[in-house]
Simulated assay, not measured.
Amino acid sequence: MTEDVSDCDEDPVTNEARRRFLVTATSVIGAIGVVGAAVPFIASWEPSARATAAGSPVDISIKKLEPGQMVTVSWRSRPVWVLHRTPEQLATLSKLNDACKDPDSKADQQFSPKVQNIYRSLEPAYFVCVGICTHLGCIPDYKPTPHSPEMGPQWLGGFFCPCHGSHYDLAGRVLKGSPAPLNLPVLPYYFLNDREIRVGTLADGSMKDWKPNTW
């Protein structure tokens, strides 16, 4: 049997030098790998040309939207809600002023002072917003039933984020005790007529690039 003694013939200084080289080389290659993996991930957060084009205004039909019903459409790859609120739902809003973090919508989460009211809408019956929780970007659920066993006796109807438990009223105002810091965003929109709403711009074509304080 022939024994490999090549490493044994080298003196300790040579072995130490080789060991340092291998450690350094491995560290450098590992760092390059991390950077190489991180760059595509970071780049994915930047909007592509296609995503920017997808930000075009969207028309939403409300002709068949019954009171209490909500429709969801996609705009800029985000869910936009249009909720046709009942008179009973509208009546709950004033009762929740003291329970809201920002009851008067002072934070920059709506496109205009025209929707900086208790309804957070151009017309009280129709609530239009981006359905993304302002905590960590989950999509809340529509929970319209007051005092339901699931939501508890104090619940008057609204939106609930299942990820971390944020609560919003039927105007998208975040309730105290929720981890979400801000109200749901009210994006630019206007009524084309009594049957359609255009979201993502105003009638004069402005505010197509509007963004809230946070999504």
Rank of each mutant, 00 (worst) to 15 (best):
T2I: 02
D4N: 12
V5L: 13
D7I: 07
D7T: 05
D7K: 06
C8V: 13
C8F: 13
V13A: 15
V13F: 07
N15S: 15
A17R: 04
R19Q: 14
R19N: 13
R19D: 14
L22C: 08
L22I: 07
S27F: 09
V28C: 08
V28N: 05
G30L: 05
G33K: 03
A37D: 10
V39P: 14
P40V: 06
P40C: 11
F41W: 15
F41G: 10
I42R: 13
A43W: 12
W45G: 13
E46N: 04
A49V: 07
T52P: 14
A53H: 06
G55F: 05
G55P: 13
P57C: 13
V58Y: 12
D59F: 04
I60L: 01
K64I: 08
P67H: 02
M70R: 13
V71E: 02
T72H: 14
V73T: 02
S74G: 03
S74W: 13
V80N: 10
R85A: 05
T86R: 09
L90R: 02
T92W: 00
S94P: 07
S94T: 10
S94V: 09
C100H: 09
K106A: 12
D108A: 11
D108N: 11
Q109Y: 12
S112P: 09
K114R: 15
I118T: 15
P124I: 11
Y126Q: 01
F127V: 03
F127W: 04
G131D: 04
T134A: 10
L136K: 13
L136N: 06
C138Y: 14
I139F: 01
I139M: 11
I139T: 12
P144D: 05
E150G: 15
M151H: 00
G152T: 14
W155P: 03
L156C: 07
L156E: 00
F159C: 00
P162M: 07
H164L: 03
H167P: 02
Y168E: 04
D169A: 10
D169K: 13
G177V: 14
P181E: 04
L184I: 02
V186G: 00
N193M: 01
D194L: 03
E196T: 12
E196R: 08
I197F: 13
L202W: 02
W210L: 07
P212Q: 13
